[in-house]
Simulated assay, not measured.
Amino acid sequence: MGFLHLPGLGKAHFHEYGTGQKPLLAFHGYGMTGKQFHVLEKSILPKYHIYGFDHFFHGGSKLDGWTDKQIRAGMPKNMVHSYMQEWFKIYGEQRFSVMGYSIGANLALILLEEYAHLVDDVILMAPDGLSVYKGFHFLLHNPLGKFMFRIVTRSKWLAPFVLKCAKKAGLIDDSLYQIAYNEIDTEQKRLDTYYTLNLIRLLKPNAEKVASRINQYKINCTLIFGKDDQLFPKSAAMPFIGMLDNAEVHELELGHWLVIKALDEYLVR
């Protein structure tokens, strides 16, 4: 493991694992760390040397002196490029691959936009960033949604109440409810949720540009979805998939919680 010192941003902590030789920069989902992909021990780990990055407000990554106002304004998209710039300073400019799960797919895709000429493979699991998720967009960009999000995450009782209402209304299923509830049961977790989603609010890849780069450089593209995923389903990604010349697309009998042993076994088969 180690750190990348990202100018104007902070220290990005990463975990190294995998027995393969090909470098792969990996970005996890909310509430996890860069070690999340350890479970793919038979399918992914033998092929790649993984650099699994912790998101800010997760694991060992720390922002450097950012104020509440700066965090709420969001991290500029071009700051993501510093991940590769600083990684190249340590390991030398070379070919690499990227992998992202859920919100982590945003960073993987933004790197692909800029460095597609050096990318061999892109692996996306239940990816955010291929379409607009209306729930997140409302909370992070709509004035009323932003106000509500700030109030809810500062309340001990309101956040669980809103989640229960969303579940009852069918906006989220039981698995998403459990994932979300586990991230709001303490004041610090609620604050981390609020800051995490606001920090990445501007980190949206250009899907058309990404698809064009993948086709231009003939990058191996693997997309994996859960049939019961209500957050980032395959249906929402179909316009993006339709722009690709030759993508490998999988849909498993799972929900949003995809990075588990069952996925490893499926990929091996």
Rank of each mutant, 00 (worst) to 15 (best):
F161A: 15
I172Q: 04
S155A: 05
T153D: 08
V119Q: 02
G255I: 10
E86R: 10
L25M: 14
Y115R: 08
M243H: 00
D64H: 03
L63M: 05
T19E: 08
K22A: 12
L171N: 07
E187S: 10
L139H: 02
M84E: 04
I260A: 07
G60N: 05
I71R: 14
D192V: 01
V210A: 13
Q70P: 07
A166M: 15
L130H: 06
P76G: 04
F57Y: 04
L263D: 05
A108F: 10
G92S: 08
N220A: 06
K218V: 01
S102Y: 01
H28K: 11
L109M: 15
A180R: 05
G129C: 01
L24V: 08
A237H: 02
D245M: 09
G74Q: 11
W257E: 12
G2Q: 09
Q36S: 07
V210M: 11
I123S: 00
Q216K: 09
D173H: 07
G59Y: 00
R95L: 05
R201Q: 12
H117C: 13
L202E: 12
L45S: 09
E187A: 15
V152K: 03
E114M: 14
G242H: 06
M99R: 00
E208V: 12
I184V: 08
Q36M: 08
G92W: 11
P239Q: 06
F96N: 01
D128C: 02
G242D: 14
L252R: 11
I172D: 05
M148R: 09
A116R: 07
L244M: 10
L107V: 14
G145I: 02
S175T: 14
K11C: 12
K22Q: 12
A12G: 12
K22M: 13
W66C: 07
F3G: 09
K69C: 04
C165A: 13
E208Y: 13
A169V: 10
K134L: 06
M32N: 14
G10E: 12
W87D: 08
R72A: 14
N220Q: 07
V268S: 11
T33G: 09
Y181A: 05
S82G: 09
F14D: 07
N182L: 05
L24S: 03
Q94N: 07
V39C: 00
S82I: 03
A237D: 03
I214G: 06
E41F: 02
Y115Q: 12
L258T: 06
N198I: 01
L223W: 00
G129I: 01
K167T: 09
K204F: 10
R72Q: 13
K69I: 12
Y115D: 10
G8Y: 11
N215E: 04
D174F: 02
V98I: 00
R269W: 09
R95I: 06
L244Q: 05
Y101W: 04
P205H: 06
A247M: 14
Y181L: 09
N246S: 15
G242N: 13
G34T: 03
S235G: 08
S235E: 13
H117M: 08
L263F: 07
I103R: 00
D64N: 11
G145T: 00
T222D: 00
A207D: 13
M84F: 11
G29W: 00
P160I: 06
